[in-house]
Simulated assay, not measured.
Amino acid sequence: MLFDLPDHSTLYQALLARNAAYDGQAYVGVSTTGVFCRLTCPARKPKPENCTFYPSVGACLEAGFRACKRCHPLQPMASADPSITALLAALDERPTYRWSEHDIERMGFDLSTVRRSFKRQFGMTFLEMARQQRLRDGFETIAGGGQVIDAQLDAGFDSPSAFRASFSRLLGRAPGRLDSTPLLFADWIETPLGNMISVCSTSRLHLLEFLDRKALKTELGKLDAFAKGKIGIGKTGPGAQIKSELEAFFDGTSARFSTPLAFGGSAFARTVWAELVQIPPGVTRSYSEIAKRIGRPSATRAVARANGANQIALAVPCHRVLGADGSLTGYGGGLWRKQKLLEIERHFKTTSKDIAE
């Protein structure tokens, strides 16, 4: 797990020194280039605020980074298994192709062996790796006003039903069932910690979540009911603003989030979320501290439930809340992300201009 790695400063010094002792044990993702490297990479060194360190290649891939062409961080895994070498090369040559189990067998590889090898080395199967990349292309086509058939082709899906099924798993409905005059607009956001979905009206941000959050389907269902089915895909002012603010956050230039927010939930939950927004970057609170600050000192468990029900990640910084003993506690986006977000925020000076209002 990421929080078992040395601290950011130690790893950055190892990157500067090209310390071979960390080869295979730690990797660096560079937000300005979108690539990840070995710490021994000969490329020009990025600024520390643009670096994110990961314990595995799989974590880098899940976070949306591409492998560096200079230090070839996938090479040791590929060398350990000829099937990985061949399949990665094939994916690189045909990134939009709809890969199937038949393709793997046709290349002479055993399906179960390939599945185990990719899961062991990358934390995901070869087909999952290829599918996520293709689905993003289709999403972007629809977001840009393209037709569903164009999105299907751009995503490399030969079968309309397969594209609909994959898309439905993402947004809870097939692309053809998206409203043509929506009240809420979904958009895809790439970040160094993984792909995210935002859902906005023309005036406010209603949801911002990582794609692999288990509660995402339920949260989208609630928004769908709220909007009476009028959810679509597209760009909005709040959507563009939160995307810009996320870029600044991960670039290390600003921790300020001022996108207008739409809070659902109970009055108590909204009070908790409003208090979370007041926590400065680089500062953490406990659930009991939040309870005291909102005038409900005995409501620690209720505060924890409201914290977990937050569906606007980062902009409503529930990751800044720790257990009473200072330990990491549950986070819908994964404890490794929570740890990384806290590490990123240590680089921001806690000044009034960086505190979300």
Results as ranks from 00 to 15, higher is better:
307 N>G: 08
294 I>T: 09
300 T>R: 07
264 G>V: 01
311 Q>P: 00
263 F>V: 04
280 P>I: 05
274 A>G: 09
302 A>W: 04
284 T>F: 11
297 P>L: 09
300 T>M: 03
267 A>H: 13
298 S>C: 00
257 F>P: 03
248 A>T: 11
284 T>I: 13
253 T>P: 07
317 P>C: 01
274 A>R: 15
249 F>T: 02
288 S>P: 06
293 R>M: 15
297 P>T: 08
265 G>T: 02
273 W>K: 00
268 F>S: 08
260 P>L: 05
287 Y>T: 12
310 N>V: 15
264 G>N: 03
280 P>Y: 08
312 I>P: 06
301 R>G: 01
289 E>D: 15
283 V>H: 11
264 G>C: 04
259 T>G: 00
261 L>E: 06
264 G>T: 03
297 P>G: 10
296 R>A: 15
267 A>D: 11
317 P>R: 00
304 A>W: 09
292 K>E: 12
258 S>R: 12
285 R>C: 11
302 A>Y: 04
281 P>N: 05
258 S>C: 10
272 V>I: 13
258 S>W: 11
284 T>D: 06
302 A>M: 08
292 K>Y: 07
319 H>M: 12
296 R>G: 05
268 F>L: 07
294 I>V: 11
312 I>K: 05
268 F>N: 02
254 S>K: 08
266 S>K: 04
300 T>I: 08
264 G>K: 01
270 R>K: 15
251 D>P: 05
310 N>R: 09
290 I>G: 06
306 A>Y: 13
303 V>F: 07
310 N>M: 13
265 G>N: 06
305 R>S: 14
307 N>P: 02
304 A>I: 02
292 K>R: 15
309 A>S: 14
279 I>T: 12
261 L>R: 04
291 A>R: 02
259 T>K: 02
272 V>D: 10
255 A>H: 02
264 G>M: 07
286 S>K: 13
